[in-house]
Design a protein around this nucleic acid. Sequence first.
DNA 1: CGGCAGCTTGACTACGGTCAATGACCGTGG
DNA 2: CCACGGTCATTGACCGTAGTCAAGCTGCCG
Lengths: 244, 244
Amino acid sequence: MTAVTDCLDCPLRRRPLFVPMTEDELAFQRRFKAGELQIPIGGEILTQGQGSGSLFTVLSGMAVRSVLMEDGRRQVISFVFPGDLIGLQSGLMGEARHTVTAVTEVVLCVFPRNRVWDLFTSHPGRAYDLTWIAAVEEHFLGETVATLGQRDATQRVAWALVRIWRRLVALRMETDGTVPFPFRQQDLSDALGLSVVHTNRVIVALRREGLAEILGRRLAIHDYARLCNVAGLDMEKDDVRPIL
Amino acid sequence: MTAVTDCLDCPLRRRPLFVPMTEDELAFQRRFKAGELQIPIGGEILTQGQGSGSLFTVLSGMAVRSVLMEDGRRQVISFVFPGDLIGLQSGLMGEARHTVTAVTEVVLCVFPRNRVWDLFTSHPGRAYDLTWIAAVEEHFLGETVATLGQRDATQRVAWALVRIWRRLVALRMETDGTVPFPFRQQDLSDALGLSVVHTNRVIVALRREGLAEILGRRLAIHDYARLCNVAGLDMEKDDVRPIL
DNA sequence: CGGCAGCTTGACTACGGTCAATGACCGTGG
DNA sequence: CCACGGTCATTGACCGTAGTCAAGCTGCCG
């Protein structure tokens, strides 16, 4: 049980991926933040069908956002990384439409939902950022739809690996040419609409090709340019975004 | 060339699908609305890669939101109906990430982008609604991802038909048990990640089963309950949402 | 050391893609 | 008025990617 991180000392917000905060915004954040929550591996941050009294920003750790379908199948909607906002939908629309499950231990900043309105009335800049965050999320989902709709298995896997890689690099989580990769192949396949078996075959193929490799919960990309090419992604960097 | 609709007389905002506006909001909308734009069939409301100086709300007509991929394939991200907001992403993130193409003649309310900020500073309620709209959109895309990832061809087509049906019914556009259906089978297949050929086979099968039928640019659902069942959707109504 | 979760591989199957041809409908111009 | 060309829907034959089933493997934790 470590002490709660003061927003002033927050290591995340200074990463190049995020839009810098003004002094004023920072002051507001400090008041807005109600505390921290620690979730163990496998724990649920949000549960489909249940309301939540809070909004969260991931301070550290990773998670998976998924929906459970009637027939028991699972679709992973997105992977969740430090800096991501969780609970906007349930915050604005009532109950959560998906489940968010921690795949590592996760530490969350907690923002009370009943004060979101304050944010809109007294901090339009932050409100704007909130909308911006939602728009960024929407954009990613659009790309995901395009991937599931149009790309074949190899392209999909390459796409997912590149996306995860880029995000973690932008967060400065790369060491020795590898980034953490706490997801199971099952998570990947549920995200990409493939069977685990086939996903595995593709991963093995990419490894043999010398493109990328998943080893001991870490991901190494050996030929970034070629992998991007396979994925159908250009090599440009991710846009910056605000962080709450 | 008919006269511009005054927000006061706007037929859309009173539909049960939308959250009613307060007097105050209505007054603001009237000032915010810069005019109308009429787009012919096949015209582009927004073009991928280009910025746009405006936000739009669809007043009438339908469109298709799509991304063009490197290899020339097309993914339809969503279908666009009256009441939908267009251009939030390009408004907040710079350039449009997708193209919106009119499939009928479309009339748009135009909101100048440079006044969006006013909305955040002086009308927090509207700003909140804007975020809400973004969250709703995100939710739909999540469902789309789940559909493309987990459902087979028949379920996908059924899902799309039910979604379109529900939306148009909520907009009161049903007559004689049918709703307008201006989309080509190509649009459907591009939305569902199927080939036109296979999409057609499924549509024919659904028709033979007496579940649903597309005839002369109109969609008839003959067995709503069963179709929902095939689609893997429960029969509950859509949530209400704000309209800009 | 045993058990379980997750990764890997092989053999077979099937859903949906591709290619190709035909048909229905419509607007245009000779 | 009809011939022509275009777009979209429909159907058939064939094929290939990815799913399913099943078995073994590896590594970790109790």
